[in-house]
Write a protein that binds this DNA or RNA. Sequence first.
DNA 1: CCACGGATTGGCT
DNA 2: GCCAATCCGTGGA
Length: 204
Amino acid sequence: MNPMSSEKKLGKYFYTRELITVAKELLGKILVKYEDGKYLSGKIVEVEAYDGSMDEAAHTFIGKTKRNEIMFEEGGYLYVYFTYGAHFCCNVVTGIKGWGTAVLIRALEPLEGIEFMAFNRYGRNLVREKEKINLTSGPGKVCHAMSITKKHYGYDLTGDSIYILDQPKIKQKNIVVATRIGIKKSVDLPWRFYIKNNPYISRK
DNA sequence: CCACGGATTGGCT
DNA sequence: GCCAATCCGTGGA
């Protein structure tokens, strides 16, 4: 468990609930990765929800394939995919087996291991304050900074390597609801959620 | 086997 | 603000 905090790790119950509930409640929680003796962590400040049963933008809309099969398991696993020939994006699988729902982690506010994140992103330490803002303000950036790759596909979030720590719920009035970014289908679903006035979000 | 396009990013105009 | 980079999953031949 993370030595810098005494908070509780989120358990199976949290993830196996309905998609939108989990998406909103993930805001403010702390994503932790412990690998090679290093702790990297950040507060989740921006997410998007995807539901294959009615959302054409979801990777699970086409049915189960080798790429998306973990999204059809019960909640609490990590779904990592590769896109645009260059970037990984990570998602938290939600709901019960067969649903095909997941929450994309779009942005973090870096907390622990910032020097390692800077090395992963820039190959050196931070020089300017602006670079800290740019570390994890986007889904590809989050994975690059945290060194999350296809190797982490299917990781169990109730395990000891990648997990999420509980934190107080963000108040409804401080959650901004918006449409999702970078998709061409189901563009009107209001399924992007972010913490109001947080400087680490990817886009207003 | 081959063609197509993507839940993005960063650099250049 | 615009656009190329770059690889792999997917689907059709």
